[in-house]
Design a protein around this nucleic acid. Structure first.
Length: 276
DNA sequence: TGCCAGGCCGAAA
DNA sequence: TTTCGGCATGGC
């Protein structure tokens, strides 16, 4: 019988791993009945339990702690953001619904690829496709349970064909992933440029990829490059904007409208408020 | 069983 | 410029 080695990672007041990991911004985590959450980001694996003001990390190498601190964006003051957002009535409800949400700092390629696969798809199936993608073309993560693999690099995917991706059952999205991988590897698409360019140029740059439109580009910018000014508008957000913000989303949220969108998305989608 | 999903592309009007 | 069908697949 093995003895678990636990590391304690203090977390900011109000942070919720459940709300952050299961609000539709990443697709590689699951939760057991006992509350344990496990999953992978990039080539890092984690199994965690939330206890008070800390995360208890099982079998986590100490050198991984900075990665997860950064991943959960512990350095950003979300209480200040929620205070700002809550000046608006609907956003106040959204922030109260899941106050523990944080915008995860995902790896740029992984986020881009994941949201290419997300289009016209549901979260459950997206998770399945990404799981098969990692198992097929990623590498085993040291210390992780068998079958938990890293997210495959664009260099690996760029060499594959649509036929190679058939086992993923990604449908028409497979050719989009390959085009993205090839353009990233060739340098035609530069994710570092997208991180710093003005939002319109960053969008346009990513939209060179076949199968990447405004929505997917903004998801890559928000979730992969932590550009909180990017504003992914999907079906739910479109409904919410039409219903609650016919005059447009509050301008004062502009620099952080992507973060605001995440609270709203989760609230509208789960509370079904758009049709209420 | 049928609807629809964190969209996008390309043709037609 | 706007509208709309098609695209693959499988949760619910």
């Amino acid at each position: 019988m093995s003895t678990a080695i636990w590391l304690r990672l203090p977390c900011p007041d109000g942070f919720s791993p459940e709300e952050s990991l299961f609000c539709g911004q990443c697709f590689r985590f699951t939760q057991e009945e006992d509350g344990t959450i496990s999953g992978a980001a990039g080539n890092h694996y984690i199994a965690l339990t939330h206890r008070g003001d800390s995360l208890l990390l099982e079998h986590c190498p100490e050198e991984d702690l900075p990665f997860w601190e950064n991943y959960f964006d512990f350095s950003t003051d979300y209480n200040a953001l929620k205070t700002l957002f809550s000046r608006d009535e609907t956003m106040a409800l959204a922030c109260a619904f899941a106050p523990g949400i944080r915008i995860l700092r995902q790896e740029p390629w992984e986020a881009l690829c994941s949201f290419i696969l997300s289009q016209s798809n549901n979260i459950r199936r997206i998770s399945g496709i990404i799981d098969r993608l990692c198992r097929q073309f990623g590498a085993p993560i040291p210390g992780a349970p068998e079958g938990i693999c890293s997210f495959p690099s664009p260099e690996i995917l760029a060499l594959l064909s649509v036929e190679d991706l058939a086992p993923l059952r990604a449908g028409f999205r497979a050719k989009y992933v390959l085009d993205a991988a090839r353009k990233v590897v060739s340098g035609q698409v530069n994710l570092e440029f997208a991180a710093t360019a003005p939002l319109p140029q960053a969008r346009e740059h990513l939209m060179q990829i076949y199968g990447v439109g405004v929505k997917v580009a903004d998801c890559a910018l928000l979730y992969g490059l932590h550009r909180l000014d990017a504003f992914p508008i999907d079906t739910w957000i479109r409904k919410a904007l039409a219903r609650y913000y016919p005059q447009g989303f509050p301008e004062e949220f502009l620099p952080w409208q992507g973060a605001a969108q995440q609270f709203l998305f989760h609230y509208i989608r789960l509370a079904k408020r758009a049709d209420a």
